[in-house]
């Protein structure tokens, strides 16, 4: 446990400069762009006189120099203030925090599905390399890996929601149903099945393939033969030794895929009309709300850092070699 804490502190400290680069970089990229939220707003209300535009700019601090605005942004960020969203007419942090839980549910479930089922099927495939089940799973996972998630989402909703009517086509829960407690949770779960499937299947295929490859590699090593020489049951060799060792790179991959999955949820939320974080990004784009977009990118970077910290802890708990001599990080 102490090892994990030590690692955690080191990782936290090293992620500070990276986060700072993200903040400054995003700010410069989006604030330097021509056209701002005031332009978009004025356009949306059908034009306005220059005096109004001027005063709006001044009230949002948009009339100052880029450097001054960056400094202003950083200081307010230090007070956990992400600024004001023109599109929503509310503080950006409030808007983001309101949408975040839906995305966390979507991403968390998709991660759990893909990692859990992917590693189990990977163990099934890797238990006997070259067997029938191995071949079927390998080919199947490669095909699945090639399917774009948003298109899979559309196909799934055509089949299961439009044609068969088993599941709802969109949203995160039935609106104004008055459902409470367990019934409400069940309702949300029903709404999440298709989007989680669409988002998770591609990663399921990825984890399956990695697990299988890792196990194939472990089988070729000396220690696999050594476990057989100990006379252990095949079940114990596969589960406790081979799979246990093959699991380690999978955990690393979990952290690496967090950012990509968050990006994927943007499109999935659009397909299933889930009012989440990704859909918010799309609304920010539509409203040319640069401050909101910056906030979204910063929060998503934080989310990715957080997932990676959790992954690091899990890795340290799974691999006794981590942090022992500094050889493995």
């Amino acid at each position: 446990m102490q090892r994990a804490f030590h690692l955690l502190r080191r990782r936290l400290i090293s992620s500070i400069p990276v986060l700072l680069i993200v903040i400054v970089g995003t700010f410069l990229l989006l604030e330097a762009a021509p056209g701002d939220a005031v332009d978009a707003y004025v356009l949306s209300i059908g034009g306005g006189d220059p005096a109004l535009v001027q005063s709006l700019r001044a009230s949002y601090g948009l009339d100052q120099s880029l450097g001054a605005r960056l400094w202003l942004y950083l200081t307010s960020l230090a007070r956990l203030d992400l600024g004001w969203s023109v599109t929503f007419g509310r503080p950006i942090l409030d808007v983001i925090l309101e949408r975040l839980p839906n995305t966390i549910w979507l991403m968390g479930s998709a991660l759990a599905l893909s990692f859990g089922l992917g590693s189990i099927l990977g163990i099934v495939a890797g238990a006997r390399p070259g067997s029938m089940s191995d071949r079927v799973l390998s080919v199947g996972s490669l095909a699945l890996y090639a399917v774009p998630s948003f298109w899979l989402g559309l196909v799934l909703s055509i089949v299961f929601a439009v044609q068969l009517r088993w599941l709802p086509t969109s949203g995160i829960e039935t609106i104004a149903s008055g459902k409470q407690g367990f019934e409400r949770a069940l309702d949300i779960a029903r709404h999440l099945i298709l989007p989680v499937g669409a988002l998770g299947f591609i990663y399921l295929a990825l984890f399956l393939r990695m697990m299988r490859a890792g196990m194939a590699q472990a089988w070729r090593q000396d220690f696999a033969l050594a476990q057989r020489a100990k006379g252990l049951s095949r079940r114990r060799i596969v589960l406790r030794h081979i799979a246990r060792n093959a699991l380690l790179p999978l955990v690393t991959m979990l952290g690496l895929q967090a950012a990509s999955m968050l990006g994927g949820s943007v499109v999935i939320e659009s397909v299933f009309a889930i009012p989440g974080f990704g859909r918010l990004a799309q609304e920010a784009v539509a409203g040319r709300d640069a401050p909101l977009l910056i906030g979204i990118i910063i929060v998503s970077a934080l989310l990715v850092i957080l997932v990676n910290l959790l992954v690091d802890i899990a890795y340290a708990l799974l691999d006794p070699r981590v942090g022992a001599s500094g050889a493995t990080t």
């Binding site: 992620s15 400069p17 990276v18 986060l19 680069i21 993200v22 970089g25 995003t26 990229l29 989006l30 762009a33 021509p34 056209g35 950012a259 990509s260 968050l262 990006g263 994927g264 943007v266 499109v267 990704g278 990004a281 799309q282 920010a284 784009v285 040319r288 640069a290 977009l293 979204i296 990118i297 998503s300 970077a301 990715v304 850092i305 990676n308």
Partner: peptide, 23 residues
Amino acid sequence: MRIVDAFQIVPSFLLALAFVSVT
């Protein structure tokens, strides 16, 4: 390498989305 790290923790699709939207 810190810049590389920074680009890797931002979801690339979100970055592409933001870039296209401003330009």
